Computed example of a mutant assay.
Amino acid sequence: MCEEPNAFGIDKIASAYDFSETIARLSAAIQSKGATIFAQIDHQAQAQQYQLQLTPMQLLIFGHPKIGTALMNSAASTGLDLPLKALVQQDCHAQVWVYLNQPDYLQLRHGFDDELLSPLRGLHTLLSHSIQ
């Protein structure tokens, strides 16, 4: 499946780089802000273990206690969406995409305080710019 509908609350950003370089650039951007990459899940490799086909797809799971703790203190349910995630996928046309939750969507979903949007927006912008 190469074409997919837009998902509510998710930004789908075209990367100017190949799959590996996109992962590397996102990882560097995340770490440049003192955030930790907790896990990197290779969905394609998992599918291949069961002889299933999947385009290259990896999930970066990351966070920063300073941002996450403030969010969860404001709205405990935010912990359902933390740590933050970036999904990197190469489609059937070899275009690499990065999927990120929209900061405003997270606020709408969890109702956390307005001042907590700024760090999320800043991180979202940093990640977007790192692949363009």
Score class of each variant (00 low, 15 high):
Val88Gln: 14
Gln102Met: 13
Leu82Thr: 08
Leu117Arg: 01
Ser128Trp: 02
Gln44Pro: 05
Gln90Asn: 07
Gly79Ala: 15
Ala94Phe: 05
Asp81Pro: 06
Ile67Glu: 01
Met1Pro: 08
Ile37Lys: 12
Gln58Asp: 03
Leu127Asp: 01
Gln53Asn: 13
Asp42Glu: 09
Asp91Gln: 10
Phe62Val: 10
Leu80Ala: 13
Asp42Tyr: 11
Cys92Gln: 13
Tyr17Thr: 08
Leu87Ile: 11
Ala76Tyr: 11
Gln49Gly: 14
Gln31Leu: 06
Gly111Thr: 03
Gln90Arg: 14
Leu127Glu: 00
Asp114Trp: 04
Lys66Asn: 11
Thr22Pro: 10
Leu127Trp: 01
Arg109Ser: 07
His124Ile: 00
His93Cys: 10
Thr69Met: 03
Gln48Glu: 15
His129Asp: 14
Ala47Leu: 08
His129Leu: 09
Gln132Pro: 05
Gln90Asp: 05
His129Trp: 04
His124Asp: 00
Asp18Tyr: 00
Thr55Ile: 01
Leu106Lys: 02
Phe112Leu: 02
Asp113Ala: 15
Phe112Cys: 01
Leu60Phe: 05
Asp42Cys: 08
Lys33Phe: 12
Ala16Leu: 06
Gly34Ser: 11
Gly79Val: 14
Ile37Leu: 11
Phe19Trp: 09
Tyr105Lys: 04
Glu3Gly: 12
Tyr105Cys: 06
Val88Ala: 11
Ala7Leu: 15
Leu71Lys: 06
Thr36Val: 14
Ala47Lys: 14
Val88Tyr: 02
Ala16Gln: 14
Asp114Gln: 15
Gln44Cys: 10
His93Lys: 13
Ala86Asn: 04
Gly79Asn: 12
Arg121Gly: 02
Ala45Phe: 06
His129Ile: 06
Gly34Ala: 13
Glu3Ala: 13
Arg109Val: 02
Leu120Ile: 00
Gln49Asp: 09
Leu117Trp: 01
Leu87Cys: 05
Thr69Lys: 01
Gln90Pro: 09
Val98Thr: 10
Asp114Ile: 03
Ala94Pro: 03
Met72Trp: 03
Leu108Ser: 07
Gln31Asn: 09
Lys85Phe: 05
Ser20Gly: 09
Ser27Tyr: 00
Leu82Gly: 05
Gly68Met: 05
Leu26Glu: 04
Gly79Met: 12
Ser74Val: 07
Leu120His: 03
Gln51Glu: 10
Ala28Arg: 15
Asp42Thr: 11
Glu115Gln: 10
Gln40Lys: 13
Thr78Asp: 04
Ala16Val: 06
Glu3Phe: 15
Gln95Lys: 14
Asn73Ile: 09
Asp113Arg: 12
Gln95Trp: 04
Pro56Arg: 13
Thr78His: 07
Gly122Trp: 01
